[in-house]
């Protein structure tokens, strides 16, 4: 499938056809998700209405990790099979991932103030997500630091792979250390510890986030492909091929 989509013309063709449906699904899931998260779902017996921050905070954390894993996988593909399209999709995904990381950190901070009494605590979960932010930043900076873009993307791909070690650290940070951040409530051996009245809106929001991310990713890949074409045309004096 990757090889099939890696051809720019085919990629544009396929995504142009799928884009309206994806955008529609994103709108649908987000609107149902927001209504059920903010209005239908019950307030928490301890936290009251602040628990509703969870419906943005948790899906953004998932997306931040998910997109970093996507970058690591496409970087590996790019390094092993030397495929420029893989590097391109990693490059396109990074700003989306860092946005979700910032969203996760800010909503977490807004949630932490009423619940813990502090905007920020230095516990393992928060610190490791902060590193994720810096890894994204380093990846993006390294990508742009070279005059020859193909060299930047390879350096950045190696960095993305080295930094992947942080992803399991984030996931298990709440188990390995005693953190103020609560331990895992969903992926547990004895099933999720959240009632379905809160779990359903959470999953709806997560689905909405995924579809939004796919829409933005596809658009960004298209933009990067066009940029690359413009660059080639500039080098070759107006023609696409020399």
């Amino acid at each position: 499938m990757f090889n099939f989509l890696a051809n720019p013309a085919r990629f544009n063709q396929v995504t142009d056809r799928l884009m309206p449906a994806t955008a529609g699904l994103a709108g649908l899931f987000l609107s149902i998700g927001i209504i059920s998260a903010l209005i239908i779902s019950p307030p928490d017996y301890q936290q009251g209405d602040t628990v509703r921050i969870m419906y943005v905070h948790v899906p953004s954390a998932w997306m931040a990790l998910f997109i970093y894993s996507f970058i690591a996988i496409t970087s590996a593909i790019g390094l092993i099979w030397r495929h420029p399209f893989a590097h391109l999709s990693a490059q396109a995904a990074a700003p989306i991932g860092i946005t979700f990381t910032i969203l996760c950190l800010t909503t977490g901070s807004l949630w932490g103030k009423p619940m813990w009494g502090a905007w920020w605590v230095w516990d393992a979960r928060l610190t490791s997500v902060l590193f994720l932010f810096f890894l994204y930043l380093g990846f993006m900076a390294l990508n742009k630091a070279f005059d020859d873009p193909s060299r930047g993307e390879k350096s950045a791909a190696i960095l993305a792979l080295v930094g992947f070690i942080n992803v399991p650290v984030i996931k298990f940070s709440v188990d390995w250390w005693n953190t103020l951040h609560q331990p895992a409530s969903l992926l547990r051996a004895d099933g999720p510890a959240i009632h379905s009245s809160m779990l359903t809106p959470l999953f709806l929001m997560a689905l909405g986030f995924i579809f939004v991310a796919v829409c933005v990713l596809v658009t960004r890949i298209k933009v990067l492909l066009l940029k690359r074409r413009i660059r080639l045309m500039r080098i070759n004096g107006g023609k696409l091929r020399s």
Binding site: F134, G138, A141, L142, A145, G152, V162, G163
Partner: peptide, 21 residues
């Protein structure tokens, strides 16, 4: 990784410091 990059020194700190934490 930063060999041949513009502003290599600052970039080096940006990518290495998080890894050294």
């Amino acid at each position: 990784l930063v060999l041949g990059a513009r502003r290599g020194g600052v970039l080096l700190a940006l990518i290495v410091l998080p890894l050294l934490v």
